[in-house]
Simulated scan of single mutants.
Amino acid sequence: MPTPRDALRAHLLATRIAGCVATPRERSLTRYRRFAARDPGVLIGLEPEYDWRFGDLLRLMAQRCGVSADSKDTSGQDVIDPERTIVALDAFADRLAKVAAARAPVLIGTGHPHRLLGFYAGLAAGLSAAGCDVLTPAQGRSVDITTRFGVRTYNLDYVRGVALVREPGARPSASEPGAHTHSPLPVRVALAAAAEGEQGLPALVIGDHGWLCGAGQLGFEAIGPADSDDPAPFVGQAEGQVSVAVPLDDTVRSDYYRPLTRYVLNRACLSQ
């Protein structure tokens, strides 16, 4: 009978959350170069302490994700080592277990609600059942985010304990759960409001993109998933701003992430 780890590895490969993923190699290499040039759109809230050059980033991403370290490998799809994903999920779960044992407050947010909302909502439910306050600061607050279409105003909202941003007037629905963003501005707004509120600041921030890097840059313990074309979380982990970055494809079907939620909650002894 397969172990939970074996079953998870098989699921990661079958759904292409890891293994040969859909992320184009060309896009990853382009984003590594943009990060080396300190493009804010790729830094997503991180302010690297060191001068990361393209070669440094390629070696780091090969080490942390399992992508090819050969700079001459310029086409096709990226490969994420499922063993690295599982090791990172174990570390992720261990951090959840410690926070739950202390019944400490947490803040959870995503820039990928179309894909990852269910993953985070399951974590929020498990942590809440364990006695942790799942914070919801600055609900409804406006956030001005620069996009490729110019500056747009979004509203900060929470769904099942998970923060996301919506366009003004947008209503929650299964087809439009929130907007996709890499910006660190939502987490900055949420943390500023938390500092002024009665519930206080979170002991842990769980999220992706700008939520992960933005919180880590501000000195909060932060953990979350990251794709192979997003070097910022892995640089943040290497430099100590991010506690855990889990390498995985963050664009597959939302229901494919349910076994990851179950695995993490079981390991953290938070299953409901």
Rank of each mutant, 00 (worst) to 15 (best):
M1P: 13
M1Y: 13
T3A: 15
L8M: 13
R9A: 12
L13G: 12
A14H: 14
A14C: 10
I17M: 14
C20P: 06
T23N: 07
P24G: 10
R31Y: 07
Y32M: 14
R34P: 02
D39M: 07
G41T: 14
V42R: 11
I44D: 06
P48Q: 08
R53A: 06
R53W: 02
F54A: 04
M61F: 04
V67D: 04
S68T: 12
A69N: 10
A69M: 04
S75E: 15
V79C: 11
P82M: 13
P82E: 12
A88F: 12
L89N: 05
A93K: 10
D94A: 11
R95F: 00
L96D: 02
V99P: 00
V99K: 00
A100H: 03
A100M: 04
A101T: 01
T110M: 03
T110A: 08
P113K: 08
P113D: 13
H114Q: 11
A124P: 02
A124R: 00
A125I: 03
A129W: 00
G131D: 09
C132L: 08
D133N: 08
P137A: 07
G140I: 12
R141L: 13
S142P: 07
V143S: 10
I145W: 08
R148Q: 15
F149T: 14
R152T: 14
T153C: 15
Y158T: 01
V162N: 08
L164P: 03
R166L: 15
R166M: 14
E167C: 05
P177F: 06
G178Q: 03
T181E: 04
P184E: 06
P184T: 00
P184G: 05
P184C: 03
A190Q: 09
A192R: 08
A192D: 12
G197F: 00
D208A: 08
W211P: 08
A215P: 13
G216F: 02
F220R: 01
E221D: 09
D229R: 07
P231F: 10
A232F: 01
F234A: 10
A238Y: 09
Q241C: 06
V242L: 01
A245Y: 04
P247Y: 05
L248C: 15
R253C: 10
Y257G: 11
L260N: 13
L265P: 05
R267C: 00
A268Q: 06
L270H: 07
S271A: 12
